[in-house]
């Protein structure tokens, strides 16, 4: 495991290095995923470019529109403890707090976890349910993409080789929006989810005006449960209606058979936990 380690101070410098070394370069932020890949010999980059010294990528704060800006190198722990995050959405705080252990959360960064695109991570489904977007820069300029559209497969995103995530923008929530994050952990407290459900819902005049449901750990990416959302739209959120909507996620998820459960079990758990998440929103 030998490589040149770079610690640029500016985004432009990081981009320059990324372009210069091309496929031989690998970005690192907190390193919780990258170091494992390096140690297992699964990646062998000649150049590792750290983003941690770039001040512009750090920090968490309210945006002028009442939304939230989370710098790409903010740690999960910083996000979990941020008053601004909690003020916007306690469910988002909970999603950050659900990640692994405090040791991991102190190290792992919000942008890094989005770029790693492990479908079992906690924050991405919640960020997607809240309609968050990431800002990405490259030598060609900046672009914004919804968190929901960032991951396209296991550990795979739409990011090009010369792009860097700089921040996550969470829009202000419409008044009356409720959100929740639930994580099914049948083994240990610090495990990845067997299934997780992030849901946000706004009720108006006793009916569902808006609902977003995103599931984690049950597909190659976080999965937006559009059929379930559609079944709720405009409906009175009775227990029966929520159960009917939740039942639809069974066919929307695409889980793997693995040591956290068979695919069939995970489908059923996706249904159970979606129903629980929806009930929690309505009964909150």
């Amino acid at each position: 495991m030998t490589y040149d380690y770079h610690e640029p101070r500016e985004v432009a410098e990081a981009l320059h290095l990324l372009v210069k070394h091309g496929e031989d370069a690998h970005l690192i932020a907190g390193g919780t995923a990258t170091v494992l890949l390096l140690r297992q010999g699964l990646i062998r980059p000649g150049h590792v470019i750290s983003l941690r010294a770039i001040g512009a990528l750090s920090g968490i704060g309210r945006a002028p529109d009442g939304g939230l800006r989370i710098g790409a190198t903010a740690t999960h722990r910083q996000a979990e403890r941020s008053a601004d995050v909690r003020a916007l959405s306690p469910a988002l705080t909970n999603a950050f707090a659900s990640v692994a252990t405090v040791r991991i959360r102190n190290q792992a960064t919000v942008g890094g976890s989005l770029a790693h695109a492990d479908p079992a991570q906690d924050p991405p489904p919640m960020l997607a349910a809240l309609g968050a977007a990431v800002t990405i820069v490259s030598p060609r300029g900046a672009r914004s993409i919804a968190v929901e559209d960032l991951a396209v497969d296991h550990f795979t995103t739409t990011l090009a080789g010369d792009e860097i995530i700089t921040e996550v923008i969470v829009p202000p929530l419409a008044p009356g929006t409720r959100a929740t994050y639930v994580k099914f952990l049948p083994r240990t407290a610090d495990d990845y989810a067997t299934v997780s459900v992030a849901a946000a819902m706004r009720l108006a005049d006793g009916a569902v005006a808006d609902a977003r449901i995103v599931l984690g750990a049950v597909g190659p990416t976080p999965i937006r449960a559009r059929a379930a959302e559609a079944a709720l739209a405009g409906a009175k959120p009775s227990r029966e209606r929520l159960a009917q909507a939740a039942a639809l996620v069974r066919d929307e998820v695409d889980p793997l058979d693995d040591l956290r459960g068979s695919a069939e079990y995970k489908r059923e758990m996706a249904r159970v936990w979606t129903e629980r998440a929806l009930l929690a929103l309505v009964e909150a």
Partner: peptide, 28 residues
Amino acid sequence: ALMEELRVEDGRVTTTNLGDYKLPTIAD
């Protein structure tokens, strides 16, 4: 009792790290 199992598929151990082969900690 609750979680530990070295999974084997076609003779190959598939739980090859402590993230997959979970051990309980004091939190559990």
